[in-house]
Design a protein around this nucleic acid. Structure first.
Lengths: 183, 183
DNA sequence: CACCTAAACGGACACGTGTCCAGTTTACTG
DNA sequence: CAGTAAACTGGACACGTGTCCGTTTAGGTG
């Protein structure tokens, strides 16, 4: 996955940056890139080379969460019909977004970058799996793809905490209704 | 519409800021708030008091466009059934967003602010009109409101120009399908 | 082992946004 | 018509992001 021929010190620095970021995130609630760089003992330039944007950094810090999310997709598919599986997965995404809204935005940005690079990325693949299962059974319209869903659920980023309960889940249902193949 | 008792000089300054903003927008393609303030002959503080955020300023500059959009809603309703009217209106919004993406984002932010202040604002009202017409005829699900739609179509802001044609219109259809009342 | 080169480094710097506050102007009041 | 409180003004300033570029160093070469 990593570029070939990376210098050893670079790898180490990258690790230290991530470590510092984790510490800053849990200790302070303000996440300042400069502070992370300082705490990691590197210059801003180094930080920015490893992670072009703040989102890239945050997304990497929470990569494990993302992995969990990705892993949940096949599990849900094994236990439920495609439509409920997709619904459940999206609910889980929403739940995650509710608690860690900043991270969610970061992950979203990361996914978006992957897509720009003509790669679906793990999240995109998980979504594709879910969608394909639904299409195969004819319960999901065939003309939607992972990117479409990601765009649609982007509203989670903008939801005010106060109105979360009233709208987040509900709008997910509306979207799912739009995704269904209506006989 | 304006707050009562505004000082005359303040009104004038506000007008000059808008004027300057218009000029900057058409001349340069970079819209820097500082530059606008300078050109208007006011300090940044003044600019920021009149328009708390850059979005507020841009939204005001393009208020006429917004008005046109709002005015289109009843016209569409007069000529078409509620569902096609809503579809047409959303298409129009999308068309607008395609051409003036920055402005669209600004307008969206403005709408969002209105809503925070427990006021629908013109756009929200136009949308409500369209939705109500559909609900009255039973073709639109009763449990959605203007805010819901605004959240959903927010994806337009994030769409890359390259993929606009492929997705913008298509996703609007998906959303509309979700909004329909399925018999 | 000395040398070389490209990758990696780091921190100063440029830039835009938004805040703050001391001074000024306005419009009302007695 | 002078006094006064509130509203307005303007620009310096604080802050975070991201860029740039001269310097350092890893790791291979003869």
């Amino acid at each position: 996955m990593n570029a070939p021929r990376r210098r050893a010190d670079a790898t180490e620095n990258r690790a230290r940056i991530l470590q510092a970021a984790r510490e800053v995130i849990v200790n302070a609630n303000e996440v300042r890139l400069n502070e992370i760089a300082k705490r990691a003992g590197v210059g801003q330039g180094t930080l920015y080379r490893h992670f072009p944007t703040r989102e890239a950094l945050l997304a990497e810090v929470y990569r494990k969460d993302v992995d969990d999310l990705v892993a949940a997709a096949p599990e849900l598919l094994a236990e439920h019909e495609p439509l409920p599986a997709l619904a459940g997965w999206l609910d889980r995404v929403a739940e995650y977004a509710k608690v860690k809204r900043e991270v969610f935005a970061a992950v979203e940005a990361g996914v978006w970058q992957d897509l720009s690079a003509h790669s679906l990325g793990p999240i995109g693949e998980a979504l594709t799996t879910l969608l394909d299962a639904g299409k195969a059974e004819g319960v999901i319209r065939p003309d939607v793809d992972a990117r479409d869903i990601i765009l649609l659920i982007g509203y989670l980023t903008r939801l005010e905490p106060a109105e979360w309960d009233a709208r987040a889940h509900h709008l997910l249902r509306v979207i799912l209704d739009g995704l269904r193949r209506h006989t």
